[in-house]
């Protein structure tokens, strides 16, 4: 196409357009893939219901009390799991050759990555809203206000963005989708459970409690809890952000290298 032939590189406006087109694609995919919709919607709902009614009574005396305390943690776990969708989606693209097709087009180099991350962020917001809605329906009461909800969403999105570097790295480096899923599960499950997401970490045995105290999921859960229920926010939020920065600093160069190696 002569229009593209002339330009030597992609301007910021075109880069944004390419990213939006590929983000659109990430969202249209849902239409034809009911499984993904299930993942996006049923899983959060299931998390909330199971945690509340199965563990609630045992852990906090009543489902209602547990929900009030644990919903922020469920929100965090849900958000972290959602970041892995990026890894799965990218890996499928690589395996199916779609990634190569996109890279053979005269478009911004990063658009296949940023487009997907953007689409996944939109899904992230959707599932956050869903968890919150179902929580509210089951009796969760926000103690702060709309500002707290928005700040929670903002914090989660920033953390999710940092985590998506890890997701991109996994997605590009793994040799198959199955491996992505196994890796993701065996990383995320212990990480979210050895934190303050669902329980009071003071009940954990010594070394585990020590780890749980510095676990980024703990910081994030405490921050969201503070934002929704009131309580200290600055300290845990800062630490959660520092952790995110650390993850991004380690994973971003590795992800870029994996991206180049695919080139």
């Amino acid at each position: 196409m002569s229009a593209v032939t002339a330009s030597r590189r992609v301007g910021p406006l075109d880069t944004a357009r390419h990213t939006m087109t590929l983000a659109w694609r990430g969202l249209v995919q849902i239409k034809h893939n009911p499984m993904e919709l299930l993942d996006l919607s049923v899983q959060p709902i299931m998390f909330v219901l199971l945690f509340t009614y199965v563990f609630g009574g045992a852990i906090a005396g009543s489902p209602g009390e547990f929900l009030q305390w644990a919903l922020p943690g469920i929100i965090v776990q849900n958000a972290l799991f959602a970041t892995l969708a990026t890894a799965v989606g990218l890996n499928v693209d690589v395996e199916k050759g779609v990634f190569d097709r996109l890279r053979s087009l005269p478009i911004a180099r990063t658009a296949p990555l940023t487009g997907r991350v953007l689409a996944d962020l939109a899904k992230q917001v959707w599932s956050l809203a869903l968890v919150l809605a179902i929580g509210l329906a089951l009796g969760f009461r926000i103690q702060t206000g709309i500002g707290g909800v928005l700040a929670s969403a903002a914090l989660l999105i920033v953390v999710a963005l940092a985590m998506s570097w890890m997701s991109v790295l996994i997605g590009l480096a793994a040799s198959s989708v199955e491996k992505v899923q196994i890796f993701a599960f065996s990383l995320m499950l212990p990480l979210t459970f050895t934190s303050s997401a669902f329980v009071d970490i003071r009940t954990m045995p010594g070394p585990l409690a020590t780890w749980a105290e510095v676990n980024p999921v703990t910081y994030l859960s405490d921050a969201i809890r503070g934002l929704l229920l009131g309580g200290p926010v600055a300290a845990p939020a800062t630490r959660a952000l520092l952790w995110s920065a650390a993850i991004a600093v380690v994973c971003a160069p590795l992800a870029v290298r994996a991206f180049r190696r695919r080139a």
Binding site: R25, V28, Q29, H32, N33, E36, D93, K96, G97, V98, D100, R101
Partner: peptide, 10 residues
């Protein structure tokens, strides 16, 4: 390419 590179979900 040698193997069809289409987005199967679209």
């Amino acid at each position: 390419g040698q193997y069809a590179a289409v987005d199967e979900t679209l």
